[in-house]
């Protein structure tokens, strides 16, 4: 769904968001805002916007349910969007294992909220053009993703 006129604004944009984990109902707010921005202000094609939104949403949810929140830094250029999720959560002991579809450490409480099916990282991988996860147990996790626009 694109409006007829192409938005004029294609310059580089940098955004910073704090993700608060205290209210689960707010998880996804940042992804929703970025989705709107890409669609309305930057005129990015709907399919690409959706890929960004889904990959971001999974990472944002993970940050809320596993890491007690964190920060998201975004850079949008004409060619790509880079999103960095940084948290000071418990870290991921085995990143390879965490990437397997169906593997989850989520407790029953998280499952009752609709997450914890072990599809978070597989979905990020699927929808992002580039994904890098760095994690240290007890220190935190940084997820970097890029999507070509």
């Amino acid at each position: 769904m694109s409006s007829g006129e192409k938005p004029a604004y294609t310059g580089t944009m940098k955004l910073h968001y704090d993700v608060n984990a205290s209210d689960f109902s707010k998880a996804g707010v940042v992804s929703g805002e970025v989705k709107k921005l890409l669609k309305v202000k930057r005129g990015v094609p709907a399919e690409v916007v959706r890929n960004v939104a889904i990959a971001m949403y999974e990472a944002e949810i993970n940050m809320v349910i596993h890491a007690n929140g964190g920060h998201i830094d975004i850079e949008i250029t004409e060619k790509e969007i880079t999103i960095i999720f940084a948290d000071k959560g418990p870290g991921i002991p085995d990143i390879a294992k965490a990437q397997q579809a169906g593997f989850s450490t989520a407790c029953e409480n998280i499952r009752s909220l609709g997450f914890g099916a072990g599809m978070g990282i597989p979905n990020m991988k699927k929808y992002a053009d580039f994904l890098d996860i760095k994690s240290e147990v007890g220190v935190g996790t940084t997820v970097t993703m890029k999507i070509f626009l």
Partner: peptide
């Protein structure tokens, strides 16, 4: 399970769910 929904992109679709929380709407969004 919302991540299972997010795993497959569909066009103009309807989501049937028993999950009655804001994340069902955010997933749809």
């Amino acid at each position: 399970m919302m991540s299972d929904v997010l795993a497959y992109v569909k066009d103009q679709s309807v989501l049937l769910t028993g999950l009655c929380n804001p994340q069902a709407i955010r997933t749809a969004e």
